[in-house]
């Protein structure tokens, strides 16, 4: 495997459309729940340990070769918000287009055929990691990091937060990212034998409620 492939996949400049999504941060800023670096950190920590850990586990399982359609169904069940399911599929579709060019593979082609409207983004991320020669824990790291880097970047724009402060938030989250990625990879290995019920299903009620509200806004900076 190539460790450098992980840097390519995790790079914020990877053309997969993630920059258009705030991961719920725009709704939280509007509601006054994120007002600066400290509350951004709280937000990211909560997101990482809930939907972030679920995404990381789904990505890791896909990277280990668990059937993507089964994982996509598991992602649906773990994403009760219709707005968030739609966003995850849009992001999955965009990631798949970029990944098929970057790491051509029959598995990515098959995924595109099976899900013309897009599979859940973490599932696509895992299959892309697999195509790039990466392992389950690599995919988990990439997904877990995205779950906090997206909101941090968005809040720089939404609140004119100092980018140094936003980056410091991400740096302080590194130990939590290690924990979440390792645990996600562990549960993904269990899912290989025991099925997808072994994957976590942690939820964040305010992210779900906020996503439905955000989807109804007439004017917004981010798609989700």
């Amino acid at each position: 495997m190539s460790r450098a492939a992980l840097l390519v996949l995790a790079d914020g400049r990877f053309p997969a459309g993630g920059h258009a999504h705030s991961g719920g941060a725009e709704a939280a800023v509007k509601a006054g729940r994120i007002t600066g670096a400290a509350s951004l950190e709280d937000f990211c920590r909560g997101r990482l340990h809930t939907t972030g850990s679920v995404s990381a586990a789904l990505a890791a399982a896909a990277a280990l070769g668990v059937d993507p359609a089964t994982l996509d169904e598991a992602a649906d069940a773990r994403t009760p918000s219709a707005a968030l399911r739609a966003a995850a599929r849009r992001l999955g579709r965009q990631l798949l287009r970029a990944a098929r060019v970057a790491w051509p593979s029959p598995e990515l082609d098959a995924l595109a055929r099976e899900f013309p409207k897009g599979a859940h983004q973490p599932v696509v991320l895992g299959v892309a990691a697999r195509a790039a020669g990466l392992g389950g824990e690599d995919a988990a790291y990439c997904s877990a990091y995205e779950s906090v880097s997206g909101p941090a970047t968005a809040v720089v724009r939404l609140l004119s937060l100092d980018p140094f402060d936003a980056t410091a938030v991400l740096a302080r989250l590194a130990p939590d990212l290690d924990d979440v990625a390792r645990e996600a990879a562990r549960s993904a290995r269990r899912a290989v034998d025991e099925g997808v019920d072994a994957l976590p299903a942690a939820s964040a009620p305010l992210l779900e409620v906020g996503a439905e509200g955000h989807a109804g806004w007439a004017v917004r900076l981010f798609a989700s």
């Binding site: 719920g24 939280a28 729940r33 994120i34 509350s39 709280d42 937000f43 990211c44 920590r45 909560g46 997101r47 990482l48 340990h49 809930t50 850990s53 939590d176 942690a202 964040a204 009620p205 305010l206 992210l207």
Partner: peptide, 12 residues
């Protein structure tokens, strides 16, 4: 519980 449970993403 995993940290952040009472933060702005989860229960606030």
């Amino acid at each position: 519980a995993p940290s952040g449970w009472d933060g702005p993403a989860v229960l606030a």
